[in-house]
Amino acid sequence: MLFFIARRLAQSVLVMLTVAMIAFALFQYVGDPINNMVDQDTSLADRERLRQELGLNDPVPVQFWRFVKNAAHGDFGVSYRLRKPVSELIAERFPATMELSLISALLALGVGIPMGVYTALHRERLPSKLFMTLSLIGVSLPTFLIGIFLILFFGVQLRWLPTFGRGDVVHIGWWSTGLLTKTGLQSLIMPAITLAIFQMTLIVRLVRAEMLEVMRTDYIKFARARGLKTRAIHFGHALKNTLVPVITIIGLQVGSIIAFAIITESVFQWPGMGLLFVQAISEVDIPVMAAYLMLIALIFVVINLIVDILYFVIDPRLRVQS
């Protein structure tokens, strides 16, 4: 087990280095950082001096090493656009994105898994059919459209919920939370639903398909033949076996909720990292883009590691035997 985790960690480091290389390449190939930092009056000599000071004339491997070293310390330089350290910007926005993503993920799992189980066990019932049809719509509609519809209906027509921003936030240390105020919670509802809907429908379909598969296995038939109670069969045996393969996908989905909060954040003007990233792209703010890329990669790597460890906890077949 320890050997396995050590190997996974080594692989993770490799993944992070690769992503770092891509992020680093941004600096080399997307625009000229000096141009972004100075205005038109700066003389060529000043530009050259700045270039030398920033180490941009050093050999590429040296620059890359410096980039990795700084990144490991959380230092991604200064934003071209906002003239503030990138780490500070990210730290400001990080809580907003995490709160939105985690609430969405909880919503997607909390509704998706039970609905998946229900639709698999009662395929013929009306709610199942209704839900499967609705979920098809959920999968096919683009996220921003759902967001815009929600804004139109609950925000503009009914005026129940705020249509943009995070509402009032409370600061606990460096973390800012919207979960403790009324406006904060109200503001969270629509973005969270918008972000959750796609993942939710995907999880429903995934759990349903896997559960149907498990219900056909011999050990479920044997459990029936032993006269076990239906509830014990469905939740004690079938659901647990269903979740083994589903966990991998769910892990990746949670990662993508965080990574792809961009669209939802844009639609609702949610002050998170996604919005920061979109603005950074339009202004070619490379340090922010690079930092965002690295952070998302890190989140995916960590989630995957957790999923791998969960496998060991759930599936006894993977635990090392002697």
Binding site: D218, Y219, F222, A225, G227, L228, H237, K240, N241
Partner: peptide, 22 residues
Amino acid sequence: RRIRGRRIGMIFQDPLTSLDPL
């Protein structure tokens, strides 16, 4: 259900798949 397993037991063909692996 109360009869199955209590008064009539059943054994299946493939022992490799008859037991819950978890």
